[in-house]
C-alpha cells in the first residue's frame, strides 16, 4: 500500500476535505479547506471526487517522501514545490514513484497549497468528514497538525490511472486582496460614516490570524452608541465581527459556532478562496455587492468546477497495469 511519510511538518499542515456540516448546532464548526475551490480542483486533477481529503499546507517548509506509486496534484498557493529537486508547476497532476521526495521551498504567491493524492488518504471519517479540527482534536491525522515522521496511508488502488492533466490557464483563479461583501446581518448597528470608512480603508492581517479567524488591523470601527455586544447568534464563514476595540475579525473555517459581537458585513462565498490565500501582514480591503451579484459569483465558481470536471474526464488516460512482474502502459480515450 502506498503511503506518504512526512519529513518536515512545516508551519501548519492538516488533512481537510470540504468540511463537516450538520453539527454546528452542537458547537462543532464546519472546518474543511479554507480554499475550497483549490481543494476541489486538486482532487479532480487526480481523478478523485471533489470532496476527497487532501493536505492543506500553510506556508513553505513542508516536505514528504512517498512510498509506492500514485498520482498527485498541487493547487492553491504557489509554494515553489519541487519533486526530487525539480520544479513542479501547480494546477497539474504528476506521476509519483517509490522514493520520490516532495518539498515546498518558499512562498511565491498565496499562503495555502493543497496536495491531493489519487484515491485520497486512508483515514476514518469523523461525523461525516475527514477534516481536522485541531481545537477539539477531531478528524484528520489524530486530530492534529502533521509532524515529522507521520505516516499516512493512501487508499490502495489495484489499477493506477495517470491523468497527466493540467487545467487551462484561464481557469486558474486570480486571487485578490480586495474581496466582496454583502451587508448584514447587523450593518444597521453602524452609522453611514462608519460603513463608508470600512469600505474605503485598507486593513492588514495581524499575526493572530489562523483557521479560526483573521484579526485585522486598520481604522477602528465604532458601533452606534458604542454598543458592540449582541445576544450571541450563529456564526458563518466570512462573517465580519467588530468587538469593542473596533478591530474587525473575519470568521474562517474553524470559527466558533456562536458569537456575541455585531457583524458589519459578510464576505461572499466566491471570495473565501481569496481570503484563504492571505498571510499575516498582507493588505485587505472590502467592496459592497448585492445578494444577487454574490449568488451570481457563487454560481460562476460552481460552473467553472463543472467545466473542469468535464474537461478532465475527456482527456485520454494512461493506465498502468501490472500482469505478473511486467508493467504495461495503456492509453485510453473517451469516445
Amino acid at each position: 500500500m502506498a503511503k506518504l511519510i512526512v519529513k518536515s511538518g512545516g508551519l501548519f499542515t492538516t488533512i481537510q476535505d470540504l468540511g463537516r456540516y450538520g453539527y454546528q448546532k452542537y458547537g462543532i464548526p464546519p472546518s474543511g479547506a479554507m480554499d475550497g475551490f483549490a481543494l476541489q480542483v486538486s482532487n479532480l486533477l487526480v481523478g478523485n471526487k471533489r470532496n476527497e481529503s487532501a493536505l492543506e499546507i500553510t506556508s513553505a517548509g513542508f516536505s514528504a517522501i512517498f512510498e509506492g506509486e500514485c498520482e498527485i496534484a498541487i493547487t492553491g498557493a504557489d509554494l515553489s514545490a519541487t519533486l526530487n529537486g525539480k520544479m513542479m508547476m501547480p494546477w497539474q497532476s504528476f506521476h509519483i514513484q517509490d522514493g520520490d521526495i516532495l518539498k515546498f521551498e518558499k512562498i511565491k504567491s498565496g499562503f495555502r497549497a493543497y496536495l491531493s493524492v489519487s484515491g485520497g488518504f486512508d483515514i476514518p471519517k469523523i461525523l461525516g468528514s475527514k477534516s481536522t479540527y485541531v481545537r477539539a482534536k477531531i478528524g484528520g491525522h489524530y486530530g492534529r497538525k502533521l509532524r515529522n515522521g507521520d505516516e499516512i496511508a493512501l487508499k490502495s488502488k489495484n489499477l493506477l490511472v495517470f491523468h497527466g492533466t493540467k487545467i487551462p490557464s484561464h481557469m486558474i483563479p486570480t486571487y485578490s486582496n480586495h474581496v466582496r461583501v454583502v451587508l448584514g446581518p447587523e450593518s444597521d448597528r453602524f452609522s453611514k460614516t462608519e460603513i463608508e470608512k470600512f469600505f474605503s480603508s485598507t486593513y492588514r492581517l495581524t499575526a493572530q490570524s489562523d483557521r479560526m479567524g483573521y484579526r485585522l488591523n486598520g481604522p477602528t470601527l465604532r458601533a452606534k452608541d458604542g454598543k458592540h455586544d449582541i445576544l450571541s447568534n450563529g456564526m458563518i464563514i466570512g462573517a465580519i465581527q467588530v468587538p469593542p476595540d473596533g478591530n474587525p475579525i473575519v470568521m474562517m473555517s474553524d470559527h466558533p459556532t456562536v458569537g456575541g459581537y455585531v457583524k458589519i458585513s459578510t464576505v461572499i462565498s466566491a471570495d473565501i478562496p481569496s481570503l484563504a490565500q492571505l498571510k499575516p501582514g498582507d493588505k485587505l480591503s472590502f467592496e459592497h455587492v448585492t445578494l444577487g451579484e454574490a449568488r451570481k459569483a457563487y454560481l460562476h465558481m460552481q460552473k467553472t468546477l463543472d467545466l473542469l470536471e468535464t474537461h478532465i474526464k475527456k482527456k485520454p488516460k494512461v493506465f498502468f497495469i501490472k500482469i505478473g512482474e511486467k508493467l504495461y502502459k495503456v492509453k485510453v480515450r473517451a469516445r
Binding site: 456540516y21 445576544l231 447568534n233 458563518i236 459556532t257
Partner: peptide, 22 residues
Amino acid sequence: IVETIPAYSSLTIIYDPKLIDF
C-alpha cells in the same frame, strides 16, 4: 437547506445558493 444554528433568540439557517435562493 444545509443546517441550522439555534441561539438565544435567533436561528441561523445555512443554505446552498446553488439549490435555493434567499
